[in-house]
């Protein structure tokens, strides 16, 4: 039976070799220890024998563990090597991570919230973080690699079984780290092609909402009135808010200027009761036209 990815076998082999040796030694050490303590307890063994050591034994239990750990190292290394060697024909997807959501960008710039890939075709993920460290982890595929802001990093895999698998963020990234989840969906080539042509980047959502989703806005700003990290979007248009500007409180009405300013310089006017330093500037990612679309959408959330 096929494993979910090409790396499952190697990682599990490396793991089970160590596990086998470990269980052997743990049981051996523990059983010997307990046996000695029982066998040589004072009532059975009133007089101890002072044995200061034995050079042969010392050599033996230095050499044997050395050989065993070299074996463990070897399998860890050889099964790991292919993880850094990406096949030339791999399909490239950019994996964007930011607090606290994933977004997968395909070759023509269209994006998806889930990673959808065709069966038996190698996939290379270019890992891009927009803020802090994240780590893309797919337990079923036995792969994990960090997204380091300001640095290029990558990972690859060959999906071998149709199905849906969890994606976690494995590197702590702040308040909603444990909610930074997504899925890999492995489809047959035909299904994938259909998805790629008809579904990728297409959505029934209004354009403003699509922009909000792509930029991870909704992981902090709810649409239903609950407070997460930032103020809710529900009823935000035209709302009166008390904001902190340079340490002073002032009252404002949420209008186009305020929204634009808040997206480009999020720490300038922070709504009272929320923390500065949580949001990055979107000056280079969201255009003014897109902000107009966002506003059109926000107006509908009353």
């Amino acid at each position: 039976m096929n494993q979910a990815s090409n790396f499952v076998e190697g990682v599990d082999l490396s793991f089970y070799i160590i596990l086998g040796i470990s269980v052997f030694f743990l049981v051996g050490i523990t059983a010997t220890m307990i046996w000695f303590v029982v066998r040589y307890r004072k009532s059975k063994s009133p007089k101890a024998k002072n044995i200061e050591g034995n050079n042969k034994l010392e050599i033996l239990w230095t050499v044997i563990p050395t050989l065993l750990v070299l074996v463990m190292f070897y399998y860890g290394w050889t099964e790991y090597e292919p993880m850094r060697k990406v096949p030339k024909d791999a399909m490239v997807v950019k994996a964007h991570g930011q607090m606290w959501s994933w977004s997968f960008e395909y070759d023509d710039g269209r994006r998806s919230e889930e990673l959808v890939v065709p069966l038996n075709k190698p996939v290379k993920l270019e890992l891009i973080s927009h803020d802090v460290l994240h780590s893309l982890y797919i337990p079923a595929f036995r792969i994990k690699e960090d997204l380091v802001p300001g640095k290029d990093n990558y990972m690859w895999f060959l999906p071998q079984k149709v199905g849906e698998y969890d994606i976690f963020c494995a590197e702590y990234c702040g308040e909603r780290h444990s909610y930074m989840l997504s899925m890999v969906r492995v489809l047959t080539e035909q299904e994938y092609n259909t998805w790629y042509e008809e579904k990728l980047g297409k959505s029934d959502d209004p354009p403003g909402l699509q922009i909000l989703k792509q930029n991870a806005c909704l992981s902090c700003h709810s649409r239903d009135g609950t407070e997460i990290v930032g103020p809710t979007f529900k009823g935000i248009w035209g709302r009166n808010e008390v904001v902190i500007t340079d340490g002073e409180e002032r009252e404002i009405t949420v209008d186009k200027d305020y929204i634009l300013h808040s997206i480009y310089e999020p720490d300038a006017d922070v709504v009272k009761g929320f923390n500065a330093g949580q949001m990055i500037s979107y000056k280079n990612t969201i255009s003014e036209e897109q902000i107009d679309q966002i506003i059109e959408y926000l107006k509908t959330l009353q």
């Binding site: 790396f7 190697g10 990682v11 082999l13 490396s14 793991f15 160590i18 596990l19 040796i21 470990s22 030694f25 743990l26 750990v69 463990m72 190292f73 399998y75 860890g76 290394w77 050889t78 099964e79 790991y80 993880m83 780590s135 982890y137 337990p139 036995r142 792969i143 994990k144 690699e145 494995a170 590197e171």
Partner: peptide, 17 residues
């Protein structure tokens, strides 16, 4: 002994973090 699992590159990739 569980540290050995962390130390092996291939196994580490799965259990790290």
């Amino acid at each position: 002994l569980t540290g050995l699992v962390n130390g092996a590159l291939a196994a580490n990739v799965h259990v790290h973090d």
